[in-house]
Design a protein around this nucleic acid. Structure first.
Lengths: 136, 136
DNA sequence: ATGGGACCTGGAGTGCGCTCCAGGTCAAGG
DNA sequence: CCTTGACCTGGAGCGCACTCCAGGTCCCAT
C-alpha cells in the first residue's frame, strides 16, 4: 500500500483543499500573495508545505476581508526573512483589532434590525388580535 | 426662536446624517432602494420622514453587506403595502441569520490568526532568550 | 446684476477581486 | 496512435457598488 510521500501538492489538490479555483490560485501568485511557486519539468506548479501553510493564512485573511494589497505586503514580509517577524505580528494584530471592530459593528447593526423586526411583529400581533390562549 | 418645523429634509442634510454622498443617495434612489423622492418646485429633492426612516434601515443593511439587489426587493415589499409585512420580517430574519453565521465565521478565522500570532511571538521569545525576571 | 452654493441630469469611469477564454503542452491509459 | 484530463499562458471580461463629471438651474445675499 505505497504511502504517497510526495513533498508537494498539485494545483488541483490545493485548490480543492482551500475551496479556491485554479484561476484564483494563479491570480494570488501573480498578485504576489505567494512566492513564485516551483514547477515540475513539464511546467506544472508544485506547491510545497510552505506554500500551503501561507495559503492557509492567506485564506483566513481574505475570508476576513483583508484587501489583496495588504496581503501582498504581508507576503513580502514573509519573503524578506525572519527579521520581519515583529512586523508580521503587527500586521496581524492590526487585523485582529479591525475584526473586533467589525464584529462589534455587525452586532450593533443587528440590534437595529432586530428592533425593526420586533416592530413589524408588533404590527402583525395587533392586526390579528388573537385572544391570549390561557392554560386552565 | 422660530423652531424649524419643516416636514422634509434636504439632500445635503440626509447625506450628512447617514454619511453618504449625494451621488450615493441618488444612486440608491435610481436603484429602487427608496421610492421616487418628492421634489421642490425647483426640482430639488425633499426627503420625508418616511424616506429617512427607510434610509436608516437601508444603511444598516448595507453596512452589514446586504447586496443592493436584495435591498431593492425589500424596498419593493415596503412600497407594495402593509400586507407584505410578513415577507419583510422573513427577509430581515434571514439577514440576521446570515449575520450570525458571518460573525461566527469571523470569530473562527480570528482564532486561526491568533494561533499564528502566538506562534510568531513564541519564535520571538526564543530568539531573545530574556531571563525570566523573578520577584524576590 | 453678480457671485456662490446647493442641487439637478445622464452617462462615463473606477477599483476590486476575481473569472473566463483561446489556444497550447504534457503524461498516462486503452 | 489517440484521446483524455490536468495543467499552462496572456489577456480580456465581469459584477458590484459606487464615484465622478460636464453642463445646467435656481435662489439668495452682497
Amino acid at each position: 500500500m505505497l504511502l504517497d510521500m510526495r513533498d508537494y501538492y498539485t494545483p488541483g489538490e490545493v485548490a480543492e483543499r482551500f475551496a479556491l479555483t485554479l484561476d484564483t490560485l494563479r491570480y494570488y501568485e501573480k498578485a504576489g500573495l505567494l512566492r513564485r511557486v516551483e514547477r515540475s519539468p513539464s511546467g506544472h506548479r508544485r506547491y510545497r508545505t510552505d506554500d500551503v501553510e501561507l495559503l492557509h493564512l492567506v485564506r483566513c485573511l481574505r475570508d476576513t476581508d483583508m484587501p489583496i494589497a495588504r496581503l501582498r505586503d504581508f507576503a513580502e514580509l514573509v519573503r524578506a526573512g525572519d527579521h520581519t517577524v515583529p512586523d508580521r505580528v503587527e500586521v496581524l494584530q492590526g487585523h485582529q483589532r479591525r475584526l473586533d471592530e467589525r464584529i462589534a459593528e455587525l452586532r450593533d447593526r443587528q440590534a437595529v434590525i432586530q428592533h425593526k423586526i420586533d416592530y413589524y411583529l408588533g404590527v402583525l400581533a395587533e392586526r390579528t388580535p388573537e385572544p391570549v390562549e390561557e392554560t386552565i
